[in-house]
Structure formats: structure tokens, C-alpha cells
Computed example of a mutant assay.
Amino acid sequence: MKIKEIELFAINLPLIDPFIISYATYDSIQSIIVKMTTDDGIVGYGEAVPDEHITGETWESTFEVLKNKLAPAVIGLDPRQFEKLHDVMDHVVRPAPAAKAAIDIACFDIAGKSMNVPVYQLLGGRYHEKFPITHVLSIGAPEKMAEEAAKKMELGYTSFKMKVGTEVTTDVARIKAVRESVGEDIAIRVDVNQGWGNAATTLTALRKMEGLDIDWLEQPVLDNDFDGLVEIKAKSDVTLMIDEGLRSERDMRELIAKRAADKANIKLMKCGGIYPAMKLAVMAEMAGIECQIGSMVESSVGSAAGFHVAFSKKIMGSVELTGPIKFSKDIGDLKYDIPFIQLNEKPGLGIDVDENVLQELTAFSEKITE
């Protein structure tokens, strides 16, 4: 089996509500869909959702890297040879993780379809039966975030991820308002997206947050500040999760060596796809660090890929792949049973892509052949 053709679609996924985090506001999500076809007619789909603040890639640069470098390099290769595929891609361009993830995911989709098994069967088989979905609260006024949380509780949500990372006093007011709104039995996770900058500011915030009983604090300091995370751990009893600081095996080695965080947020777009994500998960498992599969707000294609990784590994304690329920229009049909996600048993990713919607959302496209 050989990769014969790759089509690229740069799309805009429309959001129901703006997605607001510490460093950006999004009215839509810019994504690149890869449609890969083999010489025996099997079609697989992959996705890249780059973020210049995290992966160093833009929508436009990712499209060009795929068009001019990665797609030509993998044409003619066997899509089931994941180690070789990544070695070839790593020699062509570094790091470009979101672009590589799109190729990787499409190859796994093809491999599963060729063997008539879901992708999770290629990753060691299914371990988890279902995961609860955490609702993500975008940055807003304290009362607005509290009101949204109360409404989502009525739908059955039992955990919330709060986006903060502006000014400490205002952020703490947001957390207090949500805690008062949802009561003591609901899990609240606080994601700063690097917004507090350093350990000193974070420790000030934590003193103000005493008694609010947060589940964990995610990436409060700059992405390269592993020592800042170590200081926070030494001076507080908060559970820390690393996100933007964890992209590669090198980052995971530093995390393990310094015990800089209690939890690791693995995202396919940060590390290069399913195959590298599994490597990170195994490294974390050996060190006893619980993992989460996180989201760059992907469509059903990228979200399904993340779920297959999460469902196959015991070390995965949570998932935050909620892109498809944030979009007013999606190219795929990933099903949520709010507040849970339960994967189907279809081959590959298990996603049917609506080609009409794909064309409708496409801003520009390209086809690469042998």
C-alpha cells in the first residue's frame, strides 16, 4: 500500500460563541484538513490546527509546509509505517508539529480502515469505556462565567475548565464566582495559558484562591519556565498541570527529571500526531505522571484522533476535546452523549466527513500527486 494523493483544504470552522483565552480571542478556528488516498483507493483524513503562540505555526505557514515539503515527501510511502513516516518528516522540516499531525492522523485513519479496526486497536486496544467531558469557560466577567457554569450543570456537566490569565484579582473573582455558582461538589480546573507569567505572581494568586478547592492549576507560567513550576510546587500544595511547556520528548524528559508538574496535557497538535503522543504517554506512565489529552479546538477529525489515544491508555485521566460541540458547523460527525463521549467501533477514526460542508468551509485548497 502506498500514498498516492494528498489534498489540502484550508478551512474556517465557525464557532457558536467566541473562544476567549489569555492571549487571543477566536470567532472561528482556522484548520487544515488533509485528505489522503492510497493506490488501492483507501481514503484517510487528518487535521492540523496550528497556533503561533504554542506550536510556532500559522494557518498559512502550515498549509505551505504541507504543500511544499511534507506531502511531497510522504507520497509513495506506506501509510502504515509510522516510525519511518515520522523519520522522513523530521528530516524534511523541524519542528512543524501541527502540520505533521495532519499527515500522521490521516495515516492512522487509513491503517485502521485497511485492517477494518478502530484506531485505538492499533494503539493497544481500548482501555476506557467512556470519559466525562469538561466544559470550558472562556474568559468573561465573573457573573457571566458563573451563569454559564450554572446552565451547563443543568445539562449534566460535573467539571469545568476555567480560562483565566489576565490580572490576578479579577481572575480570582472569576474563580470565586463560579465556585459559588456550582457548589462544592463540582470540579473546577483553572487554566492560565501562561498569563500569570512567573512563579511570584502565581503564588500571590494561589494565596488569594485559598479555600476555593480547585482540581488543578494549568500552565500558570511561561512555557519554558520549568523552574517556575518547580518553585510553585515547592511553595504550595496545588496540583500542577503542564500544557504549553510540553511539546516534545525533550520537554517530557525535563518534566520528569525536575518533577515540575503533577499532570501532563498532551495535545496531538503540539507533539506531531498520534504516534508521538503515544510515546509521550508511555514516558509519563513510566514516571507516574497522569496525562490528559487536550484540544486545540479541532473538528471531528482531530478530536476523534485525540480520543483514540485517550481511550487506549490507562494513564489518561481526563480529556478536553470539545471542539465539535463549540462549532455551529463541522465537517464530521463525532457524537457526544453530554456530558460523556463514547467512541464507536467503526474502522479508522470512525468519522464520516461531509464533503459538501468541507467544500463550503474551504478558503483555499491544493492537490499533491505522485
Rank of each mutant, 00 (worst) to 15 (best):
H135D: 08
L123K: 09
S138P: 14
N198Q: 08
I242P: 02
L203M: 15
V230P: 03
L255G: 00
G156V: 06
V221E: 00
Y127R: 09
E129M: 06
P132Q: 00
E147N: 11
G124W: 03
D185Q: 10
T201I: 14
H135S: 06
S181T: 08
K233V: 08
I175D: 02
T158H: 06
L123T: 11
I175K: 01
Q194I: 03
G125P: 07
K233I: 05
E180F: 12
V221T: 15
G156Y: 08
M145G: 07
L240P: 13
V136N: 02
K163N: 08
L203G: 14
T158V: 10
G165K: 01
V230M: 01
R253Y: 09
W196G: 11
L255C: 01
K113H: 04
G183Y: 06
E184H: 12
T204G: 08
Y120S: 11
I175G: 03
P142H: 02
D225F: 04
I188T: 06
I133A: 05
G195H: 03
M252V: 13
S181E: 03
G165D: 01
D171L: 10
G125I: 05
E154G: 05
T166N: 02
R179C: 14
G124Q: 04
D171K: 05
A173V: 11
K176A: 12
F160N: 00
K144Q: 10
K130I: 10
V117D: 01
G112L: 07
I242H: 03
L246V: 13
H128L: 07
M162G: 04
D171N: 07
R174L: 09
A205S: 10
I214V: 15
V136P: 03
F226A: 06
L137R: 08
K235V: 08
G228N: 02
K113Q: 10
P118C: 10
A149M: 05
Y120M: 08
L240R: 02
D191T: 12
K235F: 12
Q194L: 09
T169Q: 04
R207H: 12
G211Y: 10
K235H: 14
V117R: 00
K113E: 05
H128K: 12
V221G: 02
T169P: 00
D215F: 14
L137M: 11
M145P: 13
